[in-house]
C-alpha cells in the first residue's frame, strides 16, 4: 500500500512539526498554501498558530470553500489548537472566518494568557492505552458539543479538550510538540479506514 498523502495547512503556525510527525509514521505530508494543493489528498491537518492570521489567509487565497468540500467528501480533517477553532461551528460570537464543520462551541484563549499555558497527562482510552502528555498554549477549550460529537479527552475538572465527529478530529493541545506520535497514528488510522470505506462505497 502506498503512503497516505496527508495535507498540512502551511499558511502559518507549526506545520513543519506536523509534517515531521507524519513522515515518522510513514505518511507523506503535503504542504498546503493554495487551493490546488488540496487535490489528491487522503486527509488534512490544520496546525496550531494564530487562528486570526490563518483565517485571513484562508479568505485571501480562497481556501475556505475547497477545504469545506474536502470535509464534505468525507476525508479526515484534524485541527490542533488554532485548527480546532477554525473547524468549529461556533466560537462564541467572535468575528473570524471559520470552516463551520465541527458541531462544537469553542472558547478562544480560554485558559488565559501565555503565563497560563501548561502541560499535563490526559487519559484518552479511545486513542491510546496509556495517558498522553498534552501541552496547552494560549489554548482554546470546547464549551459544549452537539449530538454525534464524541468526547475523546477531558482535563481532571471535566473541561473538554479532544473531540471527534465522524471524519473530523479536534484537539485544543499540540500532539505535534511532544514527540509522541500516538495521536498522529490515531489520525492515520482514521485516514486508512476512511479510504477503505470510500473504496467500498465507490469501488
Amino acid at each position: 500500500m502506498s503512503a497516505k498523502r496527508i495535507g498540512v495547512l502551511a499558511l502559518q503556525g507549526d506545520f513543519k512539526e506536523h509534517a515531521k510527525m507524519l513522515r515518522e509514521i510513514g505518511a507523506e505530508p503535503v504542504e498546503v498554501r493554495r487551493a490546488e494543493h488540496l487535490t489528491d489528498l487522503d486527509g488534512l491537518i490544520i496546525p496550531g498558530g494564530e487562528s486570526t492570521a490563518i483565517g485571513k489567509l484562508l479568505v485571501s487565497y480562497q481556501l475556505l470553500e475547497p477545504m469545506k468540500q474536502l470535509i464534505s467528501s468525507g476525508r479526515p480533517v484534524w485541527g490542533t489548537c488554532a485548527g480546532l477553532i477554525l473547524l468549529a461551528k461556533d466560537i462564541g460570537g467572535l468575528q473570524q472566518p471559520l470552516l463551520c464543520a465541527l458541531d462544537v462551541t469553542v472558547r478562544r484563549n480560554a485558559f488565559g494568557r501565555q503565563l497560563d499555558s501548561f502541560e499535563t497527562d490526559i487519559p484518552m482510552p479511545e486513542v491510546a492505552d496509556e495517558p498522553l502528555h498534552a501541552v496547552f498554549i494560549r489554548a482554546p477549550l470546547v464549551e459544549s458539543v452537539g449530538d454525534g460529537v464524541q468526547v475523546l479527552g477531558t482535563l481532571e475538572d471535566g473541561t473538554i479538550v479532544a473531540v471527534r465527529q465522524g471524519n473530523l478530529l479536534g484537539t485544543s493541545f499540540h500532539p505535534e510538540l511532544t514527540g509522541d506520535s500516538r495521536f498522529h497514528l490515531y489520525f492515520l488510522q482514521m485516514v486508512e479506514s476512511g479510504s477503505a470505506a470510500f473504496s467500498a462505497a465507490h469501488g
Binding site: 502551511a10 507549526d14 510538540l177
Partner: peptide, 12 residues
C-alpha cells in the same frame, strides 16, 4: 510551553 509558544508564531 515557552518554546512551544514561539513555534505557534512561525511563518508569521
Amino acid at each position: 510551553t515557552k518554546r512551544g509558544f514561539a513555534q505557534q508564531l512561525k511563518g508569521g
